[in-house]
Design a protein around this nucleic acid. Structure first.
Lengths: 234, 234
DNA sequence: TAGATTGTTAATCGATTAACAATC
DNA sequence: TAGATTGTTAATCGATTAACAATC
């Protein structure tokens, strides 16, 4: 057993890796994959931080929650650190994933190359539109057939799916979510513009185009206000 | 001039609305739109917070940065608060937007209904694939033709575009970003899995499927570890 | 040993929360 | 006036940062 810097609460043992850190680990992972593919063997916190868009202090702090995987005076072994981050993120196992709602967005998600390359395997595509059921979609070079949502329970159970992606219209998202959760899915990536209701223990992450654009609009507005204030102050 | 709770620094005047608050405003906005459409005239912080998935204390704190728009003992006027949030977010003006990279994802983005309904107007679709140039895409009920990237500067200039969406493959994202920035785009929503290099003053938000899935995988892994620890502890 | 770079400390900063005075 | 609910305060919590001792 390694001694890791674990945060404790009176309630019990906690994960030990702060949320803010977990949210940045995929970025470090990606930077390291890119470096490894370029044949880089060794990297300093400064270099990896630059490549990832964070400060080196933050990077070292983040990595310190995973363990002590660098060498003072030298840096980090790229492959070794890559493995440690992949392990922390749970990428050393394969995660079967289902996608529900195969419109343009669902198609785009199914065809996303970064899916397979990171240990996620699309084991099912589902759509409520009967005209679409039976259609072939190319996923990571293989053809996957679109199934009826009626077949979802069987596939989720048999493949042990715990991660589901919802790319349906807003209207059916909650219903689909309920089906997923009922059959054992405990992590959901939601592209529909609704706040899904889920029982405790189920994680949901929502990705919303409108939200992102609105935040950009806010900052855009602020920039033009600042520009005006400055030209007035002149 | 209204006296607003503005955070100051020795350097000068700052925006006054914390980032964490800005990031939640779109959620409140959406909840209020939904309530307004259901004919709800008045809402308490408790109700709006529930609908938005936050605590009422956090909601009230967030709203307090915009101003004092509620009535003690009563609540918030839905339409009025909606307008104030829209104004704060910059949604009372129309933002012309261009989308570059019209594959499956670009198509999905172009067809997204929440675009137009929130004051974003797609004024240009661009693709580097000459076979795709000239193709019609339905955007908010209108047909928009896919243009060559060579035409981007002209359209960005003439429409005063300041927000761009990048939905290209990883390979061409930085190049496209450079073109956008060179012609005056100062906010970029990036769906390509690269960290874009931009000059100071340009805002970039990156949305990445792999990142989201990896964060879910982390939590999923932690849940199964906790379950195992519990069954061992019995 | 001298130079380089990690891992950790401690200070600072920003975000969250609970409680409640203000006020409808 | 009594009840309800906001807006604000102050305490707490978590994240960031700079600096540096440890150590290759």
């Amino acid at each position: 057993m390694s001694v890791s810097p674990v945060a404790k609460t009176p309630q019990g043992v906690r994960s030990g890796i702060p949320d803010a850190t977990v949210n940045r680990l995929p970025t470090y992972h990606r930077s390291l994959v890119s470096m490894a593919s370029r044949g880089i063997l060794l990297v300093s916190s400064e270099e990896l931080a630059d490549a990832s868009g964070v400060s080196s202090a933050k990077l070292r702090k983040d990595l310190s929650f995973l363990g002590s995987y660098g060498t003072r005076g030298v840096g980090y072994d790229v492959e070794f650190l890559l493995y440690q981050i992949a392990r922390a993120l749970g990428l050393t196992q394969q995660w079967p994933v289902v996608i529900v709602g195969i419109g343009n967005l669902g198609h785009a998600l199914a065809g996303y190359p970064g899916f397979a390359s990171r240990g996620f395997k699309v084991v099912g595509l589902f759509d409520s539109d009967d005209n679409r059921v039976g259609e072939q979609v190319s996923v990571a070079g293989l053809n996957v057939v679109i199934s009826s949502i009626a077949d979802l329970p069987q596939i989720v159970r048999s493949s042990g799916v715990s991660i589901g992606v919802i790319a349906t219209p807003e209207k059916s998202a909650q219903e689909v979510c309920d089906v997923l959760v009922r059959h054992g899915v405990t992590s959901i990536l939601n592209f529909a513009p609704v706040l899904l209701e889920v029982p405790a223990g189920v994680d949901v992450r929502r990705v919303d185009l409108a939200t992102e654009l609105q935040i950009l609009a806010f900052h855009e507005q602020r920039k033009s206000q600042l520009a005006m204030a400055e030209s007035n102050a002149g």
